[in-house]
């Protein structure tokens, strides 16, 4: 399977990763080799094999519905770049 520079740029944008032109070229090779391995695995016959939903063969434990977390707003907001009146502030985003 072949990947072109436009696809790499698109994937990088979706993941909000900044790439320069050299990097984009390098990732074309990396991604092609990953997808090539996936192609090879697709050749393995899997008829009659149950899908594996998770590599660890266990099931999710459930938590009782009780409040266990205290308010730690001041602690959490001490690390935030900008806060006001209890809100986190970010550059304005409007759709």
């Amino acid at each position: 399977m072949s990947i072109d520079a436009e696809q790499v740029r698109r994937i990088a944008h979706l993941a909000r990763i900044g790439l320069d032109a050299d990097e984009a070229d390098r990732y074309i090779g990396d991604l092609e080799s990953i997808l090539g391995m996936v192609e090879r695995m697709r050749a393995v016959p899997t008829d009659g094999v149950a899908p594996l939903p998770h590599p660890i063969d266990l099931q999710q434990r459930l938590r009782p519905d009780v409040v266990t977390e205290a308010d730690q707003r001041d602690l959490f907001q001490a690390d935030a770049p900008a806060v006001a009146e209890g809100f986190y502030l970010v550059p304005r985003v409007v759709e």
């Binding site: 938590r63 519905d65 009780v66 409040v67 266990t68 977390e69 308010d71 730690q72 707003r73 959490f76 907001q77 009146e85 209890g86 809100f87 986190y88």
Partner: peptide, 24 residues
């Protein structure tokens, strides 16, 4: 519910901003 989907923070409407936001 009393608590959130994946955390033990309270699930209530109308609290002061970010008072019910846990680390999760």
């Amino acid at each position: 519910t009393a608590s959130k989907l994946f955390s033990g923070a309270p699930n209530r409407f109308g609290a002061e901003a970010n008072r019910q936001a846990s680390a999760v």
